[in-house]
């Protein structure tokens, strides 16, 4: 399947390149923009970015495999990222993660990303989200949620559905 970037997005990317004296610097911002649009980074996407920035595909692919936020597979429509680091763990993050996993029939012991069969939710543990004073915290797509009690978690799910 050909990898086609809509003209509007390409214009946005062309503008991003002008922010840097060296094109390669734009690769992280490119990956963010592409992932936001397509949901994940495919091999074709990495090749496309590489050719745009005059790089070898490996220069882009090594970023996808290094930076935890970049995905090689499509996630659920609603991506739940639960902080598992110390302050949140003290505040009940593991119970929260388990709660989501049980709701969705996922493995509560798994830390990595798991997606429901219908593709509506994915659940994963992430590291400290810089919101430790209002533990436990999590993200639902780009939204940040604080003091997430189990009942708040249920509300969040029902709002997503």
């Amino acid at each position: 399947m050909a990898f086609i970037v809509p003209a509007e997005l390409e214009a946005e990317l062309n503008e991003l390149v002008t922010h840097y004296p060296q094109k390669r610097s734009a690769s992280l911002m490119f990956l963010h923009a592409i992932q936001e649009h397509f949901g994940f980074i495919s091999k074709e996407a990495a090749e496309w970015i590489a050719s745009k920035l005059d790089l070898q595909p490996i220069h882009v692919w090594e970023l996808v495999t290094f930076y935890p936020m970049f995905r090689q597979h499509p996630p659920g429509r609603h991506q739940l990222k639960i902080c598992r680091t110390l302050s949140c763990a003290l505040g009940g993050a593991y119970a929260l993660h388990e709660h989501f996993c049980r709701k969705f029939g996922l493995d509560p012991k798994a830390h990595g990303i798991q997606t429901t069969k219908d593709g509506s939710f994915s659940v994963e543990f992430v590291e400290c989200l810089a919101g430790c004073g209002t533990a436990p915290v999590m993200m639902c797509n780009d939204e940040f949620h604080e003091n997430v009690s189990l009942s708040k978690a249920d509300e969040l799910i029902s709002k997503c559905q």
């Binding site: 922010h19 610097s25 935890p68 936020m69 970049f70």
Partner: peptide, 23 residues
């Protein structure tokens, strides 16, 4: 410039490499 989830980008020389588009 946005990072992408790696703590080591807070270390200043790691940050610089990251800003140059590298690991």
């Amino acid at each position: 410039h946005r990072g992408a989830g790696a703590y080591i980008c807070g270390e200043e020389t790691g940050l610089i490499e990251s800003l140059e588009g590298k690991r």
